[in-house]
């Protein structure tokens, strides 16, 4: 199939970027989206040009490295998948495809389609962990956890930290990510001890990184490759109020 790509090209973090039109010819419909970019890049390199830079790693939808906003939607309009799981058969021959980096001030563009998502790492470092004695593994059933809690904690833990939620949000809010990471631990008994400091720490880091504020439009939920529910945002709000009150009177 033959496609017209409109790709964001930016030489470096400080450079001005612009959209570049690139023709992608003879693409197999069995190729994945990233394989299509690989083919395009090979041709660009053969012609002595600068290949399109983009993030990728496992190409199995589990690492959270790949990004790309495809036709205005992070990871494309296909629900519940990452860009690497998108196949060219979802497009039609002759289509024009817009490929842009994840847009948010807290995700600065490094080059072309690559963005710096280390702000997420700093949010995790601000509370997305539990302090436990390491050593011999504890018996899995030594702490009984209700099935419902375990399931819902696991749903939150499915977050791969790709940043699509931020990219889809018109406010570049990271509430779905922070909500998922906080409730993943807050729902489990092991996470209770540090629940309040976790919520306050992560929300403060989120604000400090310059992410926006949730306006409850749930675009994040619609594009999340792991289909994490915006219920985690409600829980984060609830936990934040409780933690703020406790901190004020303590």
């Amino acid at each position: 199939m033959n496609l017209t790509l409109k790709v964001w090209r930016q030489a470096g973090p400080e450079s001005e970027g612009s959209m570049q039109t690139i023709e992608a010819e003879g693409i197999s419909e069995d190729a994945s989206f990233l394989e299509m970019l690989d083919v395009v890049n090979e041709r660009i390199v053969e012609e002595g040009g600068d290949p399109i830079h983009f993030d990728h790693d496992c190409r199995e939808g589990i690492c959270g490295a790949c990004s790309l906003t495809i036709n205005g939607v992070p990871h494309s309009k296909q629900q519940g998948i990452t860009t690497c799981q998108l196949h060219m058969r979802k497009f039609r021959d002759g289509d024009t495809i817009w490929i842009e980096p994840f847009r948010a001030r807290a995700f600065p563009v490094m080059k072309d389609l690559m963005v710096d998502r280390s702000s997420f790492d700093r949010i995790i470092a601000a509370g997305g962990y539990i302090d436990v004695r390491t050593g011999s593994a504890v018996d899995a059933n030594s702490v009984p956890i209700p099935k419902e809690d375990a399931d819902s904690a696991f749903d939150s833990a499915a977050c791969i930290g790709c940043g699509a939620c931020v990219a889809a949000c018109k406010n570049a809010s990271a509430m779905l990510f922070v909500g998922a990471k906080a409730s993943h631990l807050n729902k489990l008994p092991q996470g209770q001890v540090q629940k309040d400091e976790r919520v306050l720490g992560m929300v403060r880091q989120m604000d400090a990184e310059g992410f926006g504020n949730c306006t409850n439009q749930y675009e994040c939920e619609a594009v999340c490759p792991k289909e994490i529910s915006a219920d985690v945002i409600g829980k984060l709000n609830r936990d934040y109020v409780a933690a703020t009150v406790k901190e004020a009177v303590k």
Binding site: G72, E100, Y218
Partner: peptide
């Protein structure tokens, strides 16, 4: 804050779920 947090906009914009009311609050 929200406008500043987004910074630059997409050249090709699309929404999946946001209601019209929510966009003009």
């Amino acid at each position: 804050q929200n406008r500043s947090a987004k910074g630059s906009q997409y050249a090709h914009n699309a929404t999946m779920r946001a209601s019209r009311s929510s966009k003009i609050m």
